[in-house]
Write a protein that binds this DNA or RNA. Structure first.
Lengths: 336, 336
DNA sequence: CTGAAAGCGCTTACAG
DNA sequence: CTGAAAGCGCTTACAG
């Protein structure tokens, strides 16, 4: 750790007064640039620092909040988001405090704020309970939400989930799918909600509301999944879309058990991409978002906000649909 | 954020002198317990704090260091390790700074130390370049390594990798496997190194050194994997063990392409468990370690060390071998 | 155990 | 742009 110096020592060594050193360090009051340089160079060379009121105050830390408990296949999103924000903060002189939140408990966040340990937060997800966001708003703490919420006073970074749902549906329909099932895990999750909404509305519009019983919501237990799978088989669905890749793996395994081949007998897609969707055999089509990019962006907007600059309320980030073998349709060639 | 009070204000409000308040807060010099209580209760009730030399010093932060770039399937270990340490620190009044390290660059760690932002570190992995550990040792910074290194002055928490390799080999051999291949990703990684060593020595001892060409090291590119797979097929191996689950998925996909059935034609196991090994069809046998537990343990030992207590140099944590369908052998029943 | 007073070290009007 | 000096606020021997 660096050696702590007194104003007096530095002043003596440089032939300046305590006042000048103090001003050079704080930036308040004018000091010749050359003098400033001399002061900083001296401290650098001595591997020393001087404690000022300034560097006591700004913690130069940001808290990045992740959900405490989450299905494992989703952690990669939050992890990447954290990594993106971390990299940005690093490059801009800020350090990152790791924070998790559970059941709307704001005590950890309050603790950091009370002790002045952070200057703001990146929330990597939209909490189910709204008291955290309420608290941050009330206390006027700078924060950026990676996610969507119906509140124009909250700064948000997110991809357009409704649109990606629509696009995935359009691709499958244009390929000729006519009997599509949609299986959603926790529908209270806004990401799932919006994606499913976009997807299912598009499907309904194109092929009518006849198969509305093929939209399964809140499928969490093994029993609920089995029930959904029975229905899928009974209705002879030829394409199944799942909200996340853990669910998707389970669905795929069930389909194999029933003797289906993918994609020959039935097509499968996920709304949440992970390395395992790509590594799966066959690789599975999925909606993919760039979590690192979103983390970087959230970090950037947050620091702007802390500096007092105006920032956009809502920033949309890109998504991609990774088309893979699981949705390939082998069509009969009409002209041969 | 809490309101900052002057000694004088609190003294006035409580009918005490500045000196007494100062002593009550610092714990230095004796103050009647009742008086101390009054002071703390007052601050609590006012949601205020007084800046002392004390609370300027101890950062009450720990840095948890993760590798910056890592194959995705391994991130869950570091993530869980971080979560375990974080939970422990939280319960013991410490906050957690997220830090990543890359290519032996110690600048981020140095930055935190120079500014007194952390009191110690948990290293969730054994860095390839040793300058980070060297630096922490030289500066006498408290830190705990989750991993193994040949240096009795470094406090370590790890599972016994050699032993888990031996045990997995013994299980497979006892099941009757006679022709086993071992495919290792980065062999410079000490975890891979020790597990492979234990595993392969056990295999060699039991079935001779004839098939030594079935131990493939540093298999990183697709070409190297293909070459290994060709050899595995040529040598008619009936069991393939991989050092991690990403590699294992690739191997499994290759085996499927070749028309093998698992476990009927060939058995497969991994040395690194993740949710995907369990979700795979068929589920894949794997060595499993409790990363959360290791994180908690590392956190505990670090705080003891910071308090100045003596701590054990090396703590071994448990591992388990999760036996799953991928290694089940359907034996011909001899008496029917 | 507590207070009055001296001390320490950074900051900041004031003066040039 | 810089310095001498007064000021602020926490700390700590000294005294009782």
């Amino acid at each position: 750790m660096k050696r702590e110096l007194r104003l007096e020592e530095a002043a003596g060594a440089l032939g300046l007064s305590k006042s000048t050193i103090s001003r050079a360090l704080s930036g308040k009051g004018r000091v010749k640039q050359e003098t400033k340089d001399r002061v900083f160079r001296y401290l650098e060379s001595q591997d020393a620092f001087i404690k000022t009121r300034e560097n006591e105050c700004n913690s130069k830390n940001i808290g990045v909040i992740l959900p405490a408990h989450v299905i494992v296949t989703e952690t990669s999103f939050f992890q990447s988001c954290l990594d993106g924000a971390y990299e940005y903060f690093q490059k801009n002189g800020y350090d990152t405090l790791y924070v998790t939140e559970k059941d709307g408990d704001i005590s950890k966040v309050k603790h950091l704020l009370d002790r002045g340990k952070v200057e703001g937060f990146v929330l990597t997800y939209n909490p189910v309970k709204d008291n955290l966001i309420k608290y941050l708003k009330r206390e006027r703490i700078p924060f950026v939400l990676v996610g969507s919420v119906d509140d124009a006073s909250v700064i948000q970074v997110d991809s357009n989930h409704t649109e990606s749902g629509i696009e995935l549906a359009a691709i499958l329909l244009n390929q000729g799918e006519t009997n599509i099932a949609l299986v959603s895990a926790d529908s209270g999750n806004m990401v799932n909600h919006y994606r499913c909404e976009g997807f299912w509305n598009t499907v309904q519009k194109r092929i009518g509301a006849t198969n509305s019983e093929l939209f399964f919501q809140n499928v969490s237990s093994a029993i609920e999944l089995d029930r959904a799978m029975m229905k899928i088989v009974d209705c002879r669905a030829e394409c199944v879309v799942c909200t996340d890749d853990a669910l998707c793996m389970k669905v795929v395994n069930k389909l194999y058990e029933y003797g289906f081949k993918i994609p020959e007998d039935i097509r499968v897609a996920s709304m949440h991409d992970s390395i395992y969707m790509e590594m799966h055999n066959p690789p599975i089509t999925s909606i993919s978002v760039n979590a690192i990019q979103q983390g970087i962006h959230a970090g950037k907007i947050l620091l702007e906000q802390i500096k007092g600059n105006k920032v956009p309320t809502k920033t949309f980030s890109n998504y991609e649909i990774h088309l893979r073998k699981s949705t390939e349709v082998k069509r009969r060639k009409i002209y041969e």
